[in-house]
Design a protein around this nucleic acid. Structure first.
Lengths: 225, 225
DNA sequence: CGGGCAGGTTAACAGCGTTAAATTAACAGT
DNA sequence: ACTGTTAATTTAACGCTGTTAACCTGCCCG
């Protein structure tokens, strides 16, 4: 039936790609529960068991799909900031917004990565960390060298910023934004899209990120206490 | 076989409680995948289908279990701060650490709440928000009134702090803390427990929370830019 | 020609959530 | 006491899941 060409040297086999593509589509369309081995197989005209010649298990398959989905993240994030001056704090805001947008566009992948792990947690490299952590860390180090942000352990600052934006994403993915909006009616009375709403809220975080919680007057003076 | 007493007026039926208890135990022992209707039923000596007289579906059952698990959160968080002076910023640190500890002790519940939602996300009241949001908001408002933190929309500040600590928890639940530790070797060379490690890192966030990213000199003066 | 192997098939297993129908027991009414 | 009702539970079954075992088919190489 299908032409069985696979010996071409640099090329991975067609079937494997087809499986990955079908799995990716199913995941995007109906989430993880729609991604069954039989569904993937029938979409490419194979038996379910054929998949086991290419992937050890469903978990392996899902892992490959998600990993592939996140490989774009580094380029995605970098593109969002490369037009801004290196070392500037503007880059943090742009990076955070890009992270939010990327998460909203790939929320199925996000949910899996941050939920599926059975007991042995993955390496940080498998997480958006691989791409995102590097980009963010570079921004932090450059901004420190430029004297635009406080000098501290860069990894602590990176984790601080990553936690902030990732927590916002996670909360907004789990909660009804409308209910959120009712409580925090600050900015966003007419925004409907969850992503826009999240970004709108994130923009209100800027002052707190830059200047902290302490009142304006007390600011940097109280550093020693 | 079992004594069929159920007509007692104020009392919910025994079987329902037994189901919930068995489900809670199974969840704690083996996570969501260990919580099957048949496993719950066999643990209390019933048929799986008997559960459907008390709960519409597995989703309903899990929902009840998780909700019950989170009902303690408000008391838990409040207990962690009630010995500290109202309006003080010390309360934020204590509250954050308590949130981390609660999350680590109830990570199965956390994973479900922040992962399971099919498409229609839950109301904020179902999330630790119900308990946690209220406690945190009260701390923020009191600290604002006491002049200890900058005056702003309290809901934005609440969400800022909640995102920060929840993001940290989420990241540390999904990533290998050892790999994390290798990158951010700041504080924690000998800590083994994930919860302690997370709290250790959170303590390093304090300066950034209070005083922001900007360098000490530039601090509060740049407020207008 | 023959072996080996990649790629695929069908059949089957154990488990899952869930439904339908039948069963048992207790209670209420006449 | 007989009857009907309802709560609580059972067994049987359906369709789905991931996965394994065994078998087939055709290409390539010696």
């Amino acid at each position: 039936m299908a032409e069985p060409r696979l010996a071409e040297p640099g090329r991975t086999c067609d079937t494997e790609d087809a499986i990955l593509a079908a799995a990716r589509d199913l995941l995007a369309e109906g989430g993880l529960e729609a991604l069954s081995m039989r569904a993937v197989a029938s979409r490419i005209g194979l038996s379910a068991t054929a998949i086991y010649h290419w992937f050890d298990s469903k978990e392996t398959l899902v892992d490959r799909v998600v990993t592939h989905g996140f490989e774009r993240s580094e380029a995605y994030l970098w593109k969002a900031i490369d037009h801004l001056p290196a070392g500037s704090i503007e880059r943090f805001a742009a990076l955070g917004e890009a992270y939010i947008r990327f998460a909203m566009e790939n929320r199925q992948y996000f949910k899996i990565i941050f939920a599926i792990q059975p007991d042995a947690p993955r390496q940080i490299d498998d997480v958006p960390g691989k791409g995102g952590y590097r980009v963010l860390r570079r921004c932090v180090v450059e901004a420190m060298e430029a004297g635009n942000i406080r000098k501290a352990d860069p990894d602590v600052v990176v984790l601080y910023l990553w936690s902030l934006v990732h927590g916002l994403v996670t909360i907004f993915m789990a909660c009804d934004p409308a209910a959120m909006l009712a409580e925090a009616e600050a900015c966003c009375s007419e925004i409907e899209d969850v992503g826009d709403l999240t970004i709108g809220l994130f923009q209100h975080f800027r002052v707190l990120m830059r200047e902290g919680l302490l009142p304006s007057g007390a600011g940097a003076a109280a550093s020693g206490s």
